[in-house]
Amino acid sequence: MKQLILMRHGKSSWDYEVSDKDRPLLQRGINDAHLVSKTFGNHAPKIDFAYSSPAIRALHTSMICLRNLDFDLDRFKVDKALYDFSGDSVQRFVGKLDNDHQTVAIFGHNYAFTSLANTWGDQYIENVPTAGLVHIIFNVDDWSKVSKGTTERTIFPKHLK
Results as ranks from 00 to 15, higher is better:
Asn31Ala: 06
Lys21Gly: 15
Tyr83Asn: 01
Thr150Ala: 05
Leu6Asp: 04
Leu97Arg: 06
Leu69Val: 12
Ser115Lys: 07
Val90Cys: 10
Lys158Ala: 13
Ser144Met: 11
Asn68Phe: 00
Glu126Gly: 00
Ala105Phe: 01
Phe113Gln: 06
Ala131Thr: 10
Phe49Trp: 14
Thr151Phe: 06
Met1Pro: 01
Trp120Ile: 12
Leu4Lys: 10
Ile155Lys: 01
Phe107Gly: 15
His34Leu: 05
Thr103Ser: 06
Lys2Trp: 06
Asp84Pro: 10
Thr151Val: 03
Lys2Arg: 12
Asp122Ser: 08
Val128Thr: 09
Ala131Met: 07
Asp32Asn: 15
Gly41Gln: 03
Val140Met: 03
His101Gly: 01
Ala58Cys: 07
Thr150Ile: 14
Lys148Leu: 03
Phe113Glu: 08
Ser37Cys: 07
Ser115Ile: 05
Pro129Tyr: 02
Arg75Pro: 04
Asn127Glu: 14
Glu17Asp: 14
Asp74Ile: 00
Asp141Trp: 08
Gly108Ser: 10
Thr151Tyr: 05
Thr154Gln: 10
Ala44Gln: 02
Phe156Ser: 11
Asp141Lys: 08
Val134Ala: 06
Arg153Gly: 01
Asp74Pro: 15
Asn31Trp: 15
Leu97Asn: 07
Gly41Glu: 03
Glu126Met: 02
Gln3Asn: 12
Ile155Asn: 01
Thr61Ile: 05
Phe49Cys: 03
Asp100Arg: 11
Ser53Trp: 15
His109Ile: 12
Ser19Asn: 08
Ile125Ala: 04
Trp143Gly: 13
Ala50Phe: 03
Ala131Glu: 12
Arg75Ile: 04
Glu152His: 11
Thr39Val: 03
Asn31Met: 09
His34Glu: 07
Asp70Phe: 08
Asp88Phe: 00
Gly10Tyr: 02
Ala58His: 04
Ser13Asn: 12
Leu59Ala: 02
Leu160Lys: 14
Trp14His: 13
Arg28Pro: 11
His9Arg: 04
Asn110Phe: 02
Leu59Gln: 13
Leu160Cys: 15
Asp22Arg: 11
Gly41Val: 04
Gln3His: 14
Met1Val: 12
Asp98Pro: 14
Gly149Ile: 09
Gln91Cys: 03
Leu26Asp: 00
Asp100Leu: 12
Val94Trp: 11
Asn110Leu: 04
Ser147Lys: 15
Asp32Val: 12
Thr130Ser: 09
Ile5Asp: 06
Asp142Gln: 07
Gln102Cys: 03
Thr151Pro: 00
Asp88Trp: 00
His34Phe: 13
Ala81His: 09
Pro24Asn: 07
Ser52Gln: 13
Asn118Cys: 02
Ser52Val: 10
Leu133Glu: 13
Ser13Val: 14
Ser37Trp: 00
Gln123Ala: 02
Thr151Asn: 07
Met63Asp: 14
Thr39Glu: 08
Ser37Thr: 10
Gln91Ser: 08
Pro45Phe: 02
Ser19Trp: 00
Thr130Trp: 02
Met1Asn: 09
Ser53Asp: 09
Leu116Ile: 04
